[in-house]
Amino acid sequence: MTAVRPGDIEDLIRRGPDPRIPVILVYGPDTGLVTERAKALAESFLPDATDPFALVRIDGDLLASDPGRLCDEAGTVGLFGGKRSIWVRPSSRNFAPAIEAVLSIPVTDTRIVLEGGDFAKGNPVRALCEKSQRALAIPCYPDDERALGDLIDRTLRARDLRIDREAREVLVRSLGGDRRASLMEIEKLALYAAGQGSVTLDDVEAVVSDVAASVLNTLVDAAFDGRIEVVERDSRRFRLEGLDPAQVLGSALRHATAMLALRLDNPEKSSSAMAAAWRGLHFKRKASVERQLGLWGPARLRQAIDILAQAVLASRRAEPALAEAIASAALLRIAEAGRRR
Protein backbone atom coordinates (compact mmCIF):
# COMPACT_ATOMS: atom_id res chain seq x y z
CA MET A 1 0.00 0.00 0.00
CA THR A 2 1.47 3.38 -1.01
CA ALA A 3 -0.85 5.99 0.46
CA VAL A 4 1.23 8.99 1.55
CA ARG A 5 0.84 10.34 5.07
CA PRO A 6 -0.17 14.04 5.19
CA GLY A 7 2.93 15.02 7.17
CA ASP A 8 5.24 13.57 4.50
CA ILE A 9 3.63 15.16 1.44
CA GLU A 10 5.52 18.48 1.21
CA ASP A 11 8.91 16.75 1.56
CA LEU A 12 7.88 14.18 -1.06
CA ILE A 13 6.93 16.88 -3.56
CA ARG A 14 10.11 18.89 -2.91
CA ARG A 15 12.47 15.96 -3.43
CA GLY A 16 10.32 14.26 -6.06
CA PRO A 17 8.66 10.82 -5.91
CA ASP A 18 10.54 7.67 -6.88
CA PRO A 19 10.83 7.79 -10.71
CA ARG A 20 10.10 4.05 -10.78
CA ILE A 21 6.53 4.82 -9.63
CA PRO A 22 4.72 6.00 -12.76
CA VAL A 23 1.22 6.78 -11.41
CA ILE A 24 0.45 9.45 -8.79
CA LEU A 25 -3.09 10.19 -7.62
CA VAL A 26 -3.71 13.58 -5.98
CA TYR A 27 -7.15 13.83 -4.38
CA GLY A 28 -9.11 15.40 -1.52
CA PRO A 29 -11.64 18.05 -0.52
CA ASP A 30 -9.26 21.01 -0.99
CA THR A 31 -9.58 21.42 -4.75
CA GLY A 32 -7.13 24.31 -4.88
CA LEU A 33 -4.43 22.26 -3.16
CA VAL A 34 -5.20 19.24 -5.38
CA THR A 35 -4.63 21.31 -8.52
CA GLU A 36 -1.50 22.98 -7.14
CA ARG A 37 0.15 19.67 -6.20
CA ALA A 38 -0.91 17.91 -9.39
CA LYS A 39 0.60 20.74 -11.44
CA ALA A 40 3.84 20.68 -9.43
CA LEU A 41 4.20 16.90 -9.79
CA ALA A 42 3.46 16.92 -13.52
CA GLU A 43 5.84 19.79 -14.30
CA SER A 44 8.72 18.90 -11.95
CA PHE A 45 9.28 15.61 -13.76
CA LEU A 46 10.16 17.43 -16.99
CA PRO A 47 13.35 19.28 -18.01
CA ASP A 48 11.14 21.88 -19.72
CA ALA A 49 7.55 22.14 -18.49
CA THR A 50 6.67 24.57 -21.30
CA ASP A 51 7.29 21.90 -23.97
CA PRO A 52 3.78 21.04 -25.29
CA PHE A 53 5.03 17.68 -26.55
CA ALA A 54 6.36 16.70 -23.11
CA LEU A 55 3.30 17.68 -21.02
CA VAL A 56 0.07 16.02 -22.14
CA ARG A 57 -3.28 16.99 -20.60
CA ILE A 58 -6.17 14.51 -20.79
CA ASP A 59 -9.70 14.90 -19.49
CA GLY A 60 -10.80 12.11 -17.14
CA ASP A 61 -14.17 11.82 -18.91
CA LEU A 62 -12.32 10.92 -22.11
CA LEU A 63 -10.52 8.06 -20.35
CA ALA A 64 -13.83 6.81 -18.97
CA SER A 65 -15.15 6.38 -22.51
CA ASP A 66 -11.82 5.21 -23.97
CA PRO A 67 -9.81 3.33 -21.27
CA GLY A 68 -7.10 2.29 -23.73
CA ARG A 69 -6.17 5.91 -24.44
CA LEU A 70 -4.03 6.20 -21.30
CA CYS A 71 -1.95 3.12 -22.21
CA ASP A 72 -1.45 4.52 -25.70
CA GLU A 73 -0.24 7.85 -24.32
CA ALA A 74 2.00 6.18 -21.74
CA GLY A 75 3.64 4.09 -24.46
CA THR A 76 4.18 7.00 -26.86
CA VAL A 77 7.75 8.23 -27.29
CA GLY A 78 8.15 12.01 -27.46
CA LEU A 79 9.01 13.66 -30.75
CA PHE A 80 12.51 14.45 -29.51
CA GLY A 81 12.70 11.69 -26.91
CA GLY A 82 13.13 12.44 -23.19
CA LYS A 83 10.67 12.40 -20.32
CA ARG A 84 6.94 12.98 -20.58
CA SER A 85 4.16 13.81 -18.10
CA ILE A 86 0.50 12.93 -18.54
CA TRP A 87 -1.80 15.11 -16.45
CA VAL A 88 -5.30 13.64 -16.11
CA ARG A 89 -7.86 16.30 -15.14
CA PRO A 90 -10.90 15.66 -12.88
CA SER A 91 -13.76 13.51 -14.13
CA SER A 92 -17.40 13.05 -13.20
CA ARG A 93 -17.18 9.46 -14.46
CA ASN A 94 -15.26 6.38 -13.32
CA PHE A 95 -11.97 6.01 -15.21
CA ALA A 96 -10.62 3.19 -13.00
CA PRO A 97 -10.39 0.71 -15.96
CA ALA A 98 -7.87 3.05 -17.63
CA ILE A 99 -5.77 3.18 -14.44
CA GLU A 100 -5.96 -0.58 -13.95
CA ALA A 101 -4.75 -1.10 -17.52
CA VAL A 102 -1.80 1.29 -17.30
CA LEU A 103 -0.67 -0.22 -13.98
CA SER A 104 -0.37 -3.59 -15.70
CA ILE A 105 2.11 -2.48 -18.39
CA PRO A 106 5.74 -1.30 -18.15
CA VAL A 107 6.01 2.51 -18.21
CA THR A 108 9.37 4.25 -18.53
CA ASP A 109 10.29 7.95 -18.65
CA THR A 110 6.63 8.90 -18.14
CA ARG A 111 4.83 10.19 -15.07
CA ILE A 112 1.03 9.95 -14.93
CA VAL A 113 -0.57 12.43 -12.52
CA LEU A 114 -4.26 11.91 -11.73
CA GLU A 115 -6.16 14.93 -10.40
CA GLY A 116 -9.06 13.56 -8.37
CA GLY A 117 -11.92 14.88 -6.27
CA ASP A 118 -12.88 14.16 -2.69
CA PHE A 119 -12.58 10.39 -3.15
CA ALA A 120 -14.00 8.21 -0.38
CA LYS A 121 -12.10 5.17 0.88
CA GLY A 122 -14.00 2.83 -1.43
CA ASN A 123 -13.51 4.90 -4.60
CA PRO A 124 -12.17 2.53 -7.30
CA VAL A 125 -9.41 4.88 -8.53
CA ARG A 126 -8.19 5.57 -4.99
CA ALA A 127 -8.37 1.87 -4.09
CA LEU A 128 -6.28 0.90 -7.13
CA CYS A 129 -3.57 3.48 -6.39
CA GLU A 130 -3.38 2.67 -2.68
CA LYS A 131 -3.02 -1.06 -3.33
CA SER A 132 -0.52 -0.90 -6.19
CA GLN A 133 3.23 -0.77 -5.58
CA ARG A 134 3.50 1.22 -8.83
CA ALA A 135 1.31 4.12 -7.69
CA LEU A 136 1.09 6.77 -4.98
CA ALA A 137 -2.07 8.23 -3.45
CA ILE A 138 -1.60 11.76 -2.06
CA PRO A 139 -4.49 13.23 -0.01
CA CYS A 140 -5.11 16.98 0.09
CA TYR A 141 -6.97 18.23 3.15
CA PRO A 142 -7.49 21.87 4.19
CA ASP A 143 -4.31 23.49 5.48
CA ASP A 144 -3.69 23.57 9.21
CA GLU A 145 -2.04 26.57 10.91
CA ARG A 146 1.47 25.29 10.33
CA ALA A 147 0.89 24.67 6.61
CA LEU A 148 -0.75 28.10 6.21
CA GLY A 149 2.17 29.73 7.99
CA ASP A 150 4.63 28.03 5.65
CA LEU A 151 2.56 29.08 2.63
CA ILE A 152 2.49 32.71 3.81
CA ASP A 153 6.24 32.83 4.49
CA ARG A 154 7.15 31.10 1.22
CA THR A 155 4.88 33.26 -0.95
CA LEU A 156 5.93 36.57 0.63
CA ARG A 157 9.63 35.66 0.67
CA ALA A 158 9.49 35.07 -3.09
CA ARG A 159 8.38 38.70 -3.41
CA ASP A 160 11.10 40.07 -1.07
CA LEU A 161 8.65 40.61 1.78
CA ARG A 162 8.56 39.55 5.40
CA ILE A 163 5.56 39.74 7.72
CA ASP A 164 5.20 40.95 11.30
CA ARG A 165 4.37 38.23 13.84
CA GLU A 166 0.99 39.69 14.83
CA ALA A 167 0.03 40.23 11.21
CA ARG A 168 1.03 36.65 10.40
CA GLU A 169 -1.11 35.24 13.22
CA VAL A 170 -4.15 37.24 12.07
CA LEU A 171 -3.60 36.26 8.45
CA VAL A 172 -3.39 32.56 9.35
CA ARG A 173 -6.71 32.78 11.21
CA SER A 174 -8.31 34.52 8.23
CA LEU A 175 -7.33 31.84 5.71
CA GLY A 176 -7.97 28.14 5.29
CA GLY A 177 -10.40 25.78 3.60
CA ASP A 178 -9.03 26.05 0.08
CA ARG A 179 -5.38 26.42 -0.93
CA ARG A 180 -6.17 28.32 -4.13
CA ALA A 181 -8.29 30.90 -2.29
CA SER A 182 -5.63 31.27 0.42
CA LEU A 183 -2.89 31.77 -2.15
CA MET A 184 -4.92 34.41 -3.98
CA GLU A 185 -5.39 36.35 -0.74
CA ILE A 186 -1.67 36.17 0.08
CA GLU A 187 -0.69 37.28 -3.42
CA LYS A 188 -3.17 40.17 -3.23
CA LEU A 189 -1.58 41.19 0.06
CA ALA A 190 1.92 40.95 -1.45
CA LEU A 191 0.89 43.20 -4.33
CA TYR A 192 -0.55 45.74 -1.87
CA ALA A 193 2.64 45.77 0.24
CA ALA A 194 5.08 45.64 -2.69
CA GLY A 195 8.22 47.69 -2.11
CA GLN A 196 7.73 48.35 1.61
CA GLY A 197 9.76 45.35 2.79
CA SER A 198 7.39 44.23 5.53
CA VAL A 199 3.68 43.36 5.78
CA THR A 200 1.95 44.87 8.81
CA LEU A 201 -1.31 44.18 10.62
CA ASP A 202 -2.82 47.28 8.98
CA ASP A 203 -2.00 45.80 5.56
CA VAL A 204 -3.70 42.53 6.45
CA GLU A 205 -6.85 44.24 7.72
CA ALA A 206 -6.97 46.53 4.69
CA VAL A 207 -6.62 43.83 2.07
CA VAL A 208 -7.61 40.36 3.24
CA SER A 209 -11.11 40.98 4.59
CA ASP A 210 -13.52 41.95 1.80
CA VAL A 211 -15.54 45.02 2.82
CA ALA A 212 -18.94 43.85 1.52
CA ALA A 213 -18.47 40.40 3.04
CA SER A 214 -17.41 42.00 6.32
CA VAL A 215 -20.58 44.10 6.52
CA LEU A 216 -22.69 41.08 5.60
CA ASN A 217 -21.02 39.09 8.38
CA THR A 218 -21.86 41.94 10.78
CA LEU A 219 -25.54 41.59 9.88
CA VAL A 220 -25.51 37.80 10.30
CA ASP A 221 -23.64 38.00 13.60
CA ALA A 222 -26.06 40.63 14.88
CA ALA A 223 -29.03 38.38 14.05
CA PHE A 224 -27.65 35.33 15.87
CA ASP A 225 -26.44 37.53 18.73
CA GLY A 226 -29.94 38.95 19.28
CA ARG A 227 -29.08 42.56 18.37
CA ILE A 228 -32.37 43.51 16.74
CA GLU A 229 -31.54 47.22 16.25
CA VAL A 230 -28.40 46.37 14.25
CA VAL A 231 -30.35 43.88 12.13
CA GLU A 232 -32.98 46.52 11.32
CA ARG A 233 -30.33 49.14 10.49
CA ASP A 234 -28.15 46.92 8.28
CA SER A 235 -31.17 45.37 6.55
CA ARG A 236 -32.27 48.87 5.50
CA ARG A 237 -28.75 49.60 4.32
CA PHE A 238 -28.63 46.50 2.14
CA ARG A 239 -32.03 47.30 0.66
CA LEU A 240 -30.84 50.78 -0.31
CA GLU A 241 -27.65 49.34 -1.82
CA GLY A 242 -29.62 46.79 -3.84
CA LEU A 243 -27.99 43.68 -2.39
CA ASP A 244 -29.64 40.43 -3.47
CA PRO A 245 -31.81 39.15 -0.57
CA ALA A 246 -30.89 35.58 -1.52
CA GLN A 247 -27.23 36.44 -0.88
CA VAL A 248 -28.05 37.72 2.60
CA LEU A 249 -30.16 34.67 3.45
CA GLY A 250 -27.59 32.31 1.97
CA SER A 251 -24.86 33.81 4.13
CA ALA A 252 -27.02 33.41 7.25
CA LEU A 253 -27.91 29.84 6.30
CA ARG A 254 -24.24 28.87 5.80
CA HIS A 255 -23.40 30.43 9.14
CA ALA A 256 -26.13 28.47 10.96
CA THR A 257 -25.08 25.24 9.24
CA ALA A 258 -21.42 25.80 10.18
CA MET A 259 -22.36 26.42 13.83
CA LEU A 260 -24.52 23.28 13.91
CA ALA A 261 -21.65 21.19 12.53
CA LEU A 262 -19.30 22.59 15.18
CA ARG A 263 -21.79 21.89 17.97
CA LEU A 264 -22.37 18.30 16.80
CA ASP A 265 -18.69 17.51 16.20
CA ASN A 266 -17.51 19.03 19.50
CA PRO A 267 -20.23 18.34 22.09
CA GLU A 268 -17.82 18.48 25.04
CA LYS A 269 -15.88 21.59 24.02
CA SER A 270 -16.44 25.10 25.31
CA SER A 271 -17.72 27.90 23.07
CA SER A 272 -14.26 29.48 22.93
CA ALA A 273 -12.65 26.16 21.93
CA MET A 274 -15.22 25.68 19.17
CA ALA A 275 -14.67 29.22 17.88
CA ALA A 276 -10.91 28.59 17.86
CA ALA A 277 -11.50 25.48 15.72
CA TRP A 278 -13.49 27.45 13.13
CA ARG A 279 -11.16 27.63 10.13
CA GLY A 280 -11.11 30.98 8.35
CA LEU A 281 -13.01 32.84 11.09
CA HIS A 282 -11.84 36.46 11.15
CA PHE A 283 -10.41 37.45 14.50
CA LYS A 284 -12.81 40.41 14.80
CA ARG A 285 -15.79 38.03 14.74
CA LYS A 286 -14.43 35.61 17.34
CA ALA A 287 -16.03 37.17 20.44
CA SER A 288 -19.47 37.39 18.80
CA VAL A 289 -19.28 33.83 17.46
CA GLU A 290 -18.29 32.54 20.91
CA ARG A 291 -21.44 34.11 22.35
CA GLN A 292 -23.55 32.64 19.56
CA LEU A 293 -22.16 29.14 20.09
CA GLY A 294 -23.00 29.41 23.77
CA LEU A 295 -26.51 30.60 23.01
CA TRP A 296 -27.56 28.39 20.11
CA GLY A 297 -27.79 24.67 20.81
CA PRO A 298 -28.35 22.03 18.10
CA ALA A 299 -32.16 22.05 18.43
CA ARG A 300 -32.39 25.86 18.16
CA LEU A 301 -29.94 25.90 15.24
CA ARG A 302 -32.06 23.37 13.36
CA GLN A 303 -35.07 25.66 13.86
CA ALA A 304 -33.05 28.63 12.56
CA ILE A 305 -31.90 26.62 9.53
CA ASP A 306 -35.52 25.71 8.79
CA ILE A 307 -36.59 29.38 9.01
CA LEU A 308 -33.79 30.50 6.70
CA ALA A 309 -34.26 27.66 4.20
CA GLN A 310 -37.97 28.46 3.88
CA ALA A 311 -37.15 32.16 3.45
CA VAL A 312 -34.61 31.38 0.72
CA LEU A 313 -37.21 29.38 -1.18
CA ALA A 314 -39.92 32.03 -0.71
CA SER A 315 -37.61 34.90 -1.74
CA ARG A 316 -36.67 33.15 -4.98
CA ARG A 317 -40.32 32.88 -5.95
CA ALA A 318 -41.29 36.43 -4.92
CA GLU A 319 -41.01 39.83 -6.56
CA PRO A 320 -37.84 41.79 -5.62
CA ALA A 321 -39.55 44.11 -3.13
CA LEU A 322 -41.30 41.20 -1.44
CA ALA A 323 -38.08 39.17 -1.40
CA GLU A 324 -36.38 41.96 0.58
CA ALA A 325 -39.21 41.91 3.13
CA ILE A 326 -38.99 38.12 3.43
CA ALA A 327 -35.22 38.27 4.08
CA SER A 328 -35.60 41.03 6.69
CA ALA A 329 -38.42 39.19 8.45
CA ALA A 330 -36.41 35.96 8.64
CA LEU A 331 -33.37 37.71 10.12
CA LEU A 332 -35.54 39.54 12.63
CA ARG A 333 -37.07 36.21 13.72
CA ILE A 334 -33.55 34.90 14.27
CA ALA A 335 -32.58 38.04 16.20
CA GLU A 336 -35.69 37.81 18.41
CA ALA A 337 -34.83 34.19 19.19
CA GLY A 338 -31.26 35.25 19.93
CA ARG A 339 -32.44 37.92 22.34
CA ARG A 340 -34.43 35.33 24.30
CA ARG A 341 -31.33 33.99 26.03
Rank of each mutant, 00 (worst) to 15 (best):
A64V: 07
I112H: 09
V88S: 03
D8K: 08
D18C: 15
T76K: 14
E10Q: 06
P19E: 09
V23M: 03
P90T: 02
I21M: 12
G16F: 11
R15E: 10
F45D: 05
V107G: 09
A101Y: 04
F53Q: 08
E73F: 10
T108A: 10
L70C: 03
I58T: 00
G116R: 02
L41K: 13
R14D: 14
V4H: 14
E100D: 13
W87Q: 15
D59F: 00
A54M: 05
L33C: 01
A38I: 11
G7N: 03
A101V: 04
P47T: 05
R89T: 02
E73C: 10
I58R: 01
S44Q: 15
W87A: 15
V102H: 00
D51Y: 12
D66F: 06
G60S: 05
P19W: 09
A54T: 04
G68W: 00
S44I: 13
G82Y: 01
F53R: 10
V56R: 02
L79C: 10
A54V: 04
V107L: 08
T31A: 11
K83D: 06
G75H: 14
D66N: 10
D66P: 05
P17I: 09
V113I: 06
T35D: 13
S65I: 01
D59Q: 01
T110F: 15
S104C: 08
P22F: 04
T76W: 09
V107C: 09
E10P: 05
G16C: 12
I112K: 04
D61I: 00
S91P: 02
P106W: 06
I13T: 07
S65H: 00
D18M: 15
I99G: 02
L103P: 09
D8E: 10
R69I: 00
W87T: 14
R20F: 04
G116N: 04
L63I: 08
V102G: 04
A49W: 03
A42C: 13
I24R: 00
I105N: 04
P22D: 09
D48I: 03
A74W: 04
K83R: 08
S44C: 14
V4R: 13
A74M: 10
I99V: 11
D66C: 06
K39Y: 15
W87Y: 15
G75K: 14
P29S: 12
F53V: 10
L25W: 00
V23C: 02
L55V: 09
Y27H: 08
P22K: 03
I112N: 04
A74S: 12
L12M: 07
S65V: 01
D59N: 01
R37K: 05
